[in-house]
Structures are given as C-alpha cells and as structure tokens.
Amino acid sequence: MSLTFKVPIFDVKNLSFRVRGVDILSQISLEIFHGEYIAIIGPNGGGKTTLIRMLLGLEKPSSGEVRLFGKKLKNFKEWYKIGFVPQRASLVDENFPATVEDIVKMGRVANRGIFTSFSNEDTKIVEDAMLKMDIVDLKEKMVGTLSGGQRQRVMIARALASKPEILILDEPNTGVDMVSQQRFYKLLAKLNKEEKITIVFITHDIGVIADDIGRLFTINQKATICNDPKETLSCEDVSTLYGIDAHLIHNHKHEDHVC
C-alpha cells in the first residue's frame, strides 16, 4: 500500500494503560494513514477496545501520546471527521423512541451551529448516507423493530452522515447473522475503495479479514503490526495470539488459506 500522506490520521506513541498496577496495554506505537483498511484482532481482554477508547479520548492513557490529524487529542476539535460505531451498536434499547431517520440525523448534530436547525444540505447528506447503507426503505421504521443486521447499517449510516474521513468500528458484528455479516464486509470494502474512507475495525472473524484488508494489528497487551496479512498471517500466529489451536481450512472460492 502506498502511503502518500505524510501526516497520519492517528499517530500513537508508546501508549500504555494500567489498571491497579496491571498492564492492559503496554508501549503501543502505531500509525494509521489516509485510505487504509485495517483490521484489529486479538483475544478478549487483550486490550483491543481499550486501545480504540484511548484513540478516541474516551479513556486516558497511563502514559504515551495519541495525535489525531497531527494534533494532540485535547486540542483536536474536528470530531466530525471521525465516525465511531461502538461494540453495542446493534444492541440498541428496543423502547428508545427513534426512527431510522432520527438516528441517522444524529450524525449531523455536531456539524451544525447551535442556533441553526437542519438545512436542506443536512437532509440531503442524511438521505445519501441511508442510500449508501441501503436503508432508505426503513427510514420511518422504529429502530427497535429492526433486525441486528439492519440496526448495524443504521449505525454506520449515522456515522457516515457526519462525512467522516475515518470510520472506526468496534466488533460491529455482535448480534448479526452470517449473511448480514458478509454483506457488511462488502459495504466496508466499498466505502474504503469508492469513498476513500479510512476504515479501522475490531473483529473476531479471522476468516474474513484476509480478503480485503491492507494491514492487520494484533493486540494482546502489546501490538504486532502485520503489513501484508495475506502473506504473513499464519495459523501459528493466530494460535499464539489466542492461545488456542487453529486449523487450516481451504477456501476454494478465493484460493486463500484461512484459519
């Protein structure tokens, strides 16, 4: 992958997170550049979500520094450039009074001034985000009545409505069926290729990641960065990372070996 921009979106240096003397993450250094498609894998409790939370300023690191678009987190103001879809996104409260359109519109809230209401342009951007996620037909529906896969697309449309440069998704497939998952990965790849949106997502679906992603971060207290996962990710790596036996399954369609 050619890294044409010099200033990375995320520039992380020696980031550590300690709770009551126990290291959750130690000395993580990494960079994320424009246009990248990155998957983060690792065992539960390995610190993946903590890392994302520190990148977004939701958790304070014990030491180290995060720079976002070249700025220190506390000085960063252009949050609309970041689209975040958290782990529990598809597990929305069923009684929450929101139509699909209500939720997607939330993506425009931070972009407008206090004294202005939604403009025609906002409405157009919201429509566009729903179109990209193929949820226009659902716009009047209550979000609590949707399936896991539909909710997931609503949450991504909400993130897209702020016109982000980077989308960060934390295990977005929790509570989503297999067919929706495959459709979802296709959508992510499309956003990355056609819209040039940088994508970073945490996943457990090791089988899926080999196809489209550019780089792979494995997080288990420390970070291992794999620049060419198709070539270098082996089942031994996965076994070491998760502490379990991984077996090769031959994937006839793509002629890839996946674990």
Binding site: K77, E78, W79, I82, F84, M106, V109, A110
Partner: peptide
Amino acid sequence: KELYFITYDEEVAKTSGI
C-alpha cells in the same frame, strides 16, 4: 438535538464532538 443524541449514546455523542 444534542440532548437527544446524548440520551441515545453518551460516548458516541462525545466522540462526535458534542
């Protein structure tokens, strides 16, 4: 609108710059 966003998801609202 901001308060509605916060009641929906406080952390996502925060990472959106609210």
